[in-house]
């Protein structure tokens, strides 16, 4: 399996505080990798370094073998990394389909054009993408009135607009109801399978993590403390101590098997 994303000794210090400490990880093609850990463990900092929002203090990030450390978010996006946000970020004043059209305009280097009508451009492709995430019926609705789960799906469509090889999803199901969570992650898993996209995501809902990820990495105080499949992570005593706790607030193993 080819390596899509690799970090080598990724480190970020804010003043004296080391938020991310020597993190090396590999993400393979077609993999759904979960990054979990307590609040403040450094997950967001990690994400921001991968997306170019933060420059690492030490270490490097490689996409398909190329060093992308320190490139701007826009350049990293052009190289094929899409992202969705923990708190949704969409264009509230536009319709659903226009949100996707905007991403397509950018994908096609057309954002500075002043003569054509924007709403007529890439409409069909935008509808295709909305179809893919199950938002086609709502294409002409005003984005500001969408339900939260639909906004998350719209974000996914936006992220898919430039055919990314890698998707970074920051708490993709935060704020969603259980069924919506499952539906969204199922959708993500389908996209991974059908399009060969790789996904790295963070998540606090262990039901989602255990049900959908191929592999899990655990971050604590900036360091990777575990890396393995669902079962290994569930039963890792250190992970239980710093993060999972006694397991009263997510499905037990038996329940998960029943489901």
């Amino acid at each position: 399996m080819s390596v899509v994303l690799e970090t080598r000794g990724l480190t970020k210090a804010f003043g004296g505080l080391v938020a991310v400490n020597d993190v090396s990880l590999q993400l393979h093609k077609g993999e759904l990798l979960a990054l979990i850990g307590p609040n403040g463990a450094g997950k967001s900092t990690c994400f921001n370094m991968l997306m170019g929002q933060l420059r690492p203090t030490k270490g490097s990030v490689h996409l398909m073998g190329e060093d992308i450390t320190g490139l701007s978010p826009r350049v990293i996006w052009r190289r094929g990394v899409g992202r969705t946000f923990q708190i949704t970020a969409t264009y509230a004043s536009m319709t659903v389909v226009e949100n996707v059209q905007m991403a397509l305009l950018s994908h096609n280097h057309q954002v500075l054009k002043v003569l054509p009508y924007a709403h007529k451009m890439h409409r069909d492709r935008a509808h295709e993408l909305l179809e893919m995430v199950g938002m086609a019926e709502q294409a002409d609705r005003h984005c500001a009135v969408l339900a939260y789960g639909d906004l998350k799906r719209l974000e996914l469509a936006i992220a898919l607009a430039h055919e990314p090889t890698l998707l970074l999803m920051d708490e993709p199901t935060a704020g969603m109801a259980p069924r919506e969570r499952i539906a969204l992650m199922q959708l993500t898993a389908d996209i991974v399978r059908d399009q060969g996209v790789s996904v790295l995501f963070t998540e606090h809902d262990m039901d989602v993590v255990f049900a959908h990820s191929h592999r899990i990495m655990v971050l604590n105080r900036g360091q990777l403390i575990a890396d393995g499949n669902v079962e290994a992570i569930r039963n890792d005593p250190r992970v239980q101590e710093v993060y999972l706790g006694g397991g009263t607030v997510f499905k037990s193993e038996d329940e998960a098997e029943d489901a």
């Binding site: 826009r74 970020a89 969409t90 264009y91 905007m102 430039h162």
Partner: peptide, 17 residues
């Protein structure tokens, strides 16, 4: 549209190039 996009969500606009 791009101007409105930057106003509505700079994060998303920047993250999509």
């Amino acid at each position: 549209y791009a101007l409105r996009a930057a106003r509505d969500s700079e994060r998303q606009a920047e993250a999509t190039g």
